[in-house]
Each structure stands twice: as C-alpha cells, then as structure tokens.
C-alpha cells in the first residue's frame, strides 16, 4: 500500500530508500545539512524533514523545530510533476516551480546529488489522495 504523500511514513521510506543509493552518499560525503519539505497549497499537512550527515540520512520524520538549512516547497500539482520526473530538479529550481530557501551555491555545488535526491523522492510508491 502506497504511503500518503508528505506523511511521516512517506519521509521515513525516503530515508530508507536513500540507503540504496551509494552514489548520493558518496557525492555528499562532505555534506551536512537539514532540509524540510511541504505542500504550499495544503497548509493542513505537517512539514517533514531529512537530516543528512556526511552523506547518510540520520533523521527522516516530522519537522521538529530544529534549524533547517534548506526549505523546499511547491503546490501539489508541481510536486506530482517533480516526483514523476516530468520536471527535472534543476529545471524545477531554475524556474522556481520548486520553491527553495537556503544556499543556492550549495544547491549548485551539489546539483547532481540534488537531482538524485529528487529521483529518490519519486521512487517511493505514493498516494497523493491526502
């Protein structure tokens, strides 16, 4: 059964899926940051976050109030397109269909793992009926 999009179950599956991608762990071996996701047009849905330390996800769950280095958000329609791969990560960022708060330099420096990370989000069977 697919996890509800942007649920705690979904973000935890994302964290688990991350483990199956050694390439992103290698690319991010010097990277240490937290980031949060939310749905712009669904303020009733709680935000979720990931914490990556030296390439490994060490926290995947509800946004718990700790400092976030990046925040990514957009409306449900754009989330669907990003997760399906219809919009690439770079394109989503450049056209601001994926809203982004945080260091743009870091996003550019780690553009390849950024794209892999969006692919990982799309690999989780998801139920958008929320």
């Amino acid at each position: 059964m697919a996890a509800k999009f942007m649920s705690t179950e979904w973000i935890r599956l994302v964290g688990k899926q991350w483990d199956t991608h050694p390439e992103i762990q290698k690319d991010l071996k010097n990277f240490n940051a937290t980031w949060e996701y939310y749905i712009e047009d669904r303020p009733d849905i709680p935000h979720v976050m990931l914490f990556c330390k030296a390439g490994k996800v060490i926290y995947a769950g509800p946004s718990d109030g700790r400092r976030r280095d990046f925040i990514m958000w957009t409306n449900m329609d754009h989330w669907k397109k990003i997760l399906s791969g219809e919009i690439s990560g770079k394109s989503a960022l450049m056209t601001r269909r994926l809203k982004f708060k945080g260091s743009m330099m870091t996003a550019m420096k780690y553009m390849t793992p950024f794209n892999i990370h969006l692919n990982i989000l799309g690999e989780i069977p998801v139920d958008f009926d929320i």
Binding site: N30, N32, A33, A54, D69, S103, M105, T106, M108, K109
Partner: peptide, 13 residues
C-alpha cells in the same frame, strides 16, 4: 563571500 555548506568549510551545523 558565502561558502557552500560543507563539512570542511562552513557547515551551519
């Protein structure tokens, strides 16, 4: 003069 987030540079964490 900002730096990208990096363990070796200026990680905010």
């Amino acid at each position: 003069g900002h730096e990208a987030i990096d363990l070796r540079a200026t990680s905010s964490l």
